[in-house]
C-alpha cells in the first residue's frame, strides 16, 4: 500500500507525532488547492475513506506519495534538528517540495 510506504519513509526519517496529519494537509493543499475536508465534501466522497474519492484524485495521492517516499528515503540521515518539531518541519518541507513538482504533471 503506497500510503503505508509513505508513512514508513516519514518514520524512518525520524518523523513523529502530528507530522502524518500535517503531511496529509500539505499534500492536499499542493495537489488540489484545498483542505482534506473540502476535497471530500466537494467530490461527494466519504470522509476518511480515500477509496471513495474520484479515481484521478486517488491516483494523484498515489503518485505523489510514491515520489515523496522515494525522496524521503534518499534523504534518510540528512534530515535532522534539535527538536522533534524541527525534524518534522524538514520532513514536511520535503513533502511540500515533491508535491509542488507532482502538481505540474496533473491535468487540472
Amino acid at each position: 500500500m503506497v500510503n503505508c510506504r509513505f508513512n514508513k519513509s516519514i518514520k524512518d526519517n525520524g518523523g513523529a507525532d502530528d507530522v502524518y496529519e500535517q503531511a496529509a494537509v500539505t499534500q492536499t493543499k499542493e495537489l488540489f488547492g484545498c483542505t482534506v475536508n473540502d476535497l471530500y465534501r466537494e467530490t461527494g466522497g466519504k470522509k476518511g475513506r480515500r477509496d471513495t474519492l474520484p479515481q484521478p484524485a486517488q491516483e494523484a495521492y498515489m503518485v505523489n506519495e510514491s515520489l515523496a517516499a522515494n525522496e524521503l528515503d534518499r534523504q534518510i540521515g540528512t534530515l535532522g534538528g534539535e527538536s522533534q518539531d524541527e525534524v518534522n518541519s524538514q520532513i514536511l518541507a520535503s513533502v511540500e517540495q515533491t508535491s509542488k513538482q507532482t502538481r505540474k504533471w496533473l491535468p487540472w
Binding site: E21, V36, K47
Partner: peptide, 17 residues
Amino acid sequence: QASYESCLDAYMLVLNS
C-alpha cells in the same frame, strides 16, 4: 479539531492521532 480536519485516512486516527 486538527485531527478531524486533516483526516484523509480514517485508520490514521487509530494508528497515529
